[in-house]
Amino acid sequence: MGSYLDIERLASLVRKKRGSRGLRETSAEIGNVSPSTLSRVEGGKMPDMETFLALCDWLQVPPAELFRTTEEDQLDTPEAIAIQLRADKKLDPAIANALASLVKAAYRDLSQQDDESKQDP
């Protein structure tokens, strides 16, 4: 049984709590998290452990609530690829998100083609 951090949920919670406040203001409130790191997390990048725990404290969310197991949430291939792309520190968050969207769109297209071929004898 494997586990993974639900980075999408973390990013969503951070964006929601920050709201319309600026990155600098929010990072100062959290403490020990730079505005650029906060931006990367909001963009779906995997934070380091210290940042993750600081964000959990700020969000008032137990860290365990943000982890999923592969047994409870069997990831489909496009989602697994998206998680890997967003976790890659070499990729800009915007590029990682764009690539993830392309992969998901390609898989949706394949799925629709499969459905159409099953309907046409």
Rank of each mutant, 00 (worst) to 15 (best):
M1E: 09
M1Q: 07
G2E: 11
G2H: 09
Y4V: 03
Y4D: 04
L5D: 11
D6K: 07
I7P: 05
L10M: 10
L10A: 12
L13D: 09
V14I: 08
V14D: 15
R15Q: 14
K17D: 09
R18N: 07
R21P: 00
G22S: 15
R24Q: 13
R24L: 12
R24P: 06
A28P: 00
E29Q: 12
I30G: 06
G31L: 04
G31W: 05
P35S: 07
P35N: 04
S36F: 00
S36P: 00
S36Q: 11
T37D: 08
T37F: 02
L38K: 08
R40C: 05
R40F: 09
R40L: 05
V41E: 06
V41R: 07
V41Q: 04
G43L: 09
G43Q: 09
G44H: 08
K45M: 11
M46D: 12
P47T: 12
P47Q: 13
P47A: 05
P47L: 10
D48A: 14
D48Q: 14
M49E: 10
E50S: 12
L53V: 10
A54S: 15
A54F: 02
A54L: 15
L55A: 10
C56I: 13
C56Q: 05
D57Q: 14
D57L: 13
L59M: 13
L59R: 11
L59D: 09
Q60T: 13
V61Y: 06
P62G: 13
P62C: 06
A64W: 06
E65W: 05
E65G: 01
L66E: 13
L66D: 11
L66V: 12
F67K: 10
R68Q: 15
T69S: 14
T70F: 01
T70R: 04
E71L: 05
D73V: 09
Q74V: 03
L75N: 01
D76P: 04
P78R: 02
A80W: 01
A80Y: 00
I81T: 01
A82E: 01
A82M: 00
A82D: 02
I83N: 04
I83M: 11
I83V: 08
Q84I: 03
R86E: 09
D88L: 04
K89H: 13
K89N: 13
K89P: 11
K90C: 10
L91T: 08
L91W: 08
D92R: 12
P93Q: 09
P93R: 13
A94W: 03
I95C: 02
A96M: 03
A96Y: 05
A98E: 14
L99F: 03
A100H: 01
A100S: 05
S101R: 07
S101N: 07
L102S: 02
L102H: 04
K104W: 01
A105T: 01
A105F: 00
A105Y: 01
A105H: 02
A106N: 09
A106I: 02
Y107K: 04
Y107G: 00
Y107T: 03
D109Y: 10
D109L: 11
S111I: 03
Q112L: 14
Q113A: 13
D115K: 12
D115P: 00
E116A: 14
E116G: 06
S117I: 15
Q119K: 15
D120W: 10
D120G: 08
P121D: 15
P121S: 12
P121K: 11
P121A: 15
